[in-house]
């Protein structure tokens, strides 16, 4: 196990996100508890688990989207860049640093160009030339540029599902996030596109930290450096992906889940 850890270069990187004893509840009903792990810079951290295991709720707390749901509360401590996210005074600046990709693509009712240019505009970039560069670069990185470069002025919602998902990724990238969170991004995407996006993510790792929520065990295996298993409202395992798949688990349920023998 020690040798396996040594093979991971990211483990020595500074901690980007530290989660300690987090519990989430809706109106007094706890859906997730005792979540504790660190995410290091430039690593892809996978979160796997069946539906309704609290994965999406957990992501929502990370960028303080819990505020919108009055019944949703969380306890414990989450620090981002060594600062407690609860103490973040300007929550908008926190969210700007965290890019989110939702399970189903959300093409905003704007043109393709405006979808990607929105975040830079909100941050005060106004020059057309500057925006052009950002839009092209983000679409390029999301592997979408070649398909949409001639129709930047058409509505984003008119693109196909897979294209919209990549548009969402391009939009998240346009924020120049330090942390990118993807929530089951491949649900509405065909396998070929999924592989292309996965390649993109492997490259993006050099520039940012990625939290990848997925219910595809094999996807987590392909991408994640380390991962956590959410099960029955708690985190049953956190470990290096390779080790977990090699059978070095603390909890028998992890092995069952990874082998597809669960339930």
């Amino acid at each position: 196990m020690v040798t396996a850890m040594a093979s991971l270069p990211h483990i020595d990187n500074p901690v980007k996100l530290a989660v300690k004893d987090v519990a989430i509840s809706y109106g007094g009903r706890t859906v997730l508890e005792s979540v504790t792990f660190d995410v290091h810079e430039h690593e892809i951290f996978g979160i796997i688990g069946p539906a309704n295991s609290g994965k999406t709720s957990f992501l929502k707390t990370l960028n303080r989207m819990d505020i919108f749901n009055p019944s949703m509360t969380f306890t414990g401590q989450i620090t981002f860049n060594d600062r407690d996210i609860r103490k973040w005074r300007n929550v908008y600046s926190l969210r700007k640093r965290i890019g989110v990709v939702f399970p189903l693509p959300v093409g905003l009712p704007l043109t393709v160009y405006e979808n990607v240019a929105l975040a830079p505009r909100l941050s005060g970039v106004t020059g057309k030339a500057d925006l052009d560069i950002i839009v092209e670069r983000c679409l390029e990185r999301a592997a979408l540029w070649d398909e949409v470069k001639d129709r930047l002025d058409s509505l984003g919602s008119l693109l196909s599902g897979g294209q919209q998902q990549r548009l969402t990724i391009a939009r998240a990238l346009s924020q120049e996030p330090e942390l990118l969170m993807l929530d089951e991004f491949s649900i509405a995407v065909d396998p070929v596109t999924t592989m292309r996006i996965e390649d993109v993510l492997k490259k993006l790792k050099k520039e940012m930290t990625i939290v990848l929520v997925t219910n595809l065990v094999q996807q987590a295996r392909r991408l994640a450096d380390r991962m956590a298993l959410f099960l029955d409202g708690e985190v049953v395992e956190v470990g290096i992906t390779e080790d977990l798949f090699a059978g070095q688990v603390k909890d028998q349920r992890t092995k069952d889940y990874l082998d597809g023998r669960f339930g």
Partner: peptide
């Protein structure tokens, strides 16, 4: 979801 997506962007 439009509002959520935009809010998530900060």
């Amino acid at each position: 979801r439009y509002r959520e997506a935009a809010e998530a962007m900060g």
